[in-house]
Write a protein that binds this DNA or RNA. Structure first.
Lengths: 226, 226
DNA sequence: ACCTGTGTGAACGCTCTGTTACACGGGTTG
DNA sequence: CAACCCGTGTAACAGAGCGTTCACACAGGT
């Protein structure tokens, strides 16, 4: 995903932190010129403009962004309560606004809805570990960019292991956590699924799942762990 | 100006008072039927739906409003902080939201910006995915330029899937999001509608909807975007 | 060399899905 | 008002896919 443009420079720590937590990349610019210099090749994903400290600069930046050949969307404005009146007659300069101080989850919800509304990229939920990528929304898996054709149980097992890399699980734990608490069956079932997973991962990556003799299995971190 | 539709009935005093102060006329309705009975000849100016007390009723009303021949705009949702997660996957049901308790001036600012925005017509009336085109205004569908004769449920189901391409939905999710919250019925209903959709899409495009065994259905091809 | 634990392949049986047929209700037509 | 059509929900069945189990080979540790 392309980064968001933030104004001013430096951005308020709370804003930067909220975006980091939500997983949105960003870059700061303190002026129109700095924004132009920092702009990625594929353009910004959007802009978040803080209008508290320097309203004039903020609105100037918004105006510039909107005057481009392809007007930048979305533009989210962060304003303090007393600034609400400043929005008067400036509706064309922003797509949404958020009161400052803001709740991180409100900001995240607004960004999400904004991206949905403007039709631009929404990030899928991913579980990644090295060459392995699991897309939780599409139920797809890929390794080295090549899609893996996993069955439901294989996917669930791999997802559980990959979300807890390095940790060892006994077969009983895996049965209860992946198969379900009420499940009562042979522990060897796990072995067979592990084997099929290794086979589908390919010879090169079969060692992503390692056997811990007399204990169980673990995912990743084959050698050097803390 | 036509009145705003408020939900539920009675509306929170703070909301009514804020609207009175801002000069917006309004009427309350506690159900879909009441809203239909109260609707002015020229239609509502918009709707403000409070989701705090009765989320199910609120979202059902939103869905009804959006399914009209001319989808009602704008819809402003009032939610409490803990409800932010409820907005997940419901982006199509509202145009903006406001955290409750709200500051009257924030509400006023949002309404103002909302009317400005919807007045300029930014709502996407088409949903496109590859050869498929859905016209949300005329309720028509076409594939490869040839019109599809879909029933109401088929259209709603396809619309929901096509607006979330690549994402997998369980039958339960589809029942609640397409059929409605209050719906209690067999999950196999979804299967049959999927099958009818595939049949109408034609042999060539039937694979636009793919089955994810033990999970549900998804539309279109993966978005392996980063 | 023995024993325990794990890898491997095949076969069984169940769950899930595709598909068809039918029942029900609302609306329309004669 | 009856007869019909259309849209929708539900039941039933068959087939395929998939999970589980078993039997045996193999490796590691004592």
């Amino acid at each position: 995903m392309e980064p968001l443009l933030l104004f001013p420079d430096p951005a308020p720590p709370a804003l930067a932190q909220a975006l980091d937590l939500a997983g949105y990349p960003w870059k700061c610019a303190g002026s129109v010129e700095a924004a132009a210099a920092l702009e990625p090749e594929d353009g910004w994903a959007g802009a978040i403009v803080v209008a508290d400290a320097d309203p004039d600069g903020a609105f100037t930046l918004c105006r510039t962004l909107r005057r481009r050949d392809v007007p930048l969307e979305p533009v989210l404005l962060l304003v303090s309560g007393v600034q609400l009146a400043d929005l008067e007659l400036r509706d064309d300069l922003f797509d949404d606004f958020c009161l400052s101080p803001f709740h991180p989850r409100e900001l995240e919800a607004r960004l999400k809805h904004l991206f949905w509304r403007t039709g631009t990229g929404t990030r899928p939920e991913l579980v990644e570990y090295g060459p392995l990528v699991l897309n939780l929304e599409t139920y797809q898996a890929a390794i080295d960019g090549k899609p893996l054709d996993l069955t439901y149980m294989e996917y669930e097992l791999l997802k559980f292991l990959a979300t807890n890399p390095g940790k060892v699980f006994t077969r009983e734990i895996l049965l209860s956590r992946v198969w379900g608490y009420e499940y009562y069956g042979g522990a060897r079932t796990v072995d067979v699924h592990i084997r099929r997973l290794r086979a589908k991962l390919g010879e090169e990556h079969a060692n992503l799942i390692s056997t811990v003799r007399s204990v169980g299995y673990k995912f990743g971190q084959p050698r050097w762990s803390l």
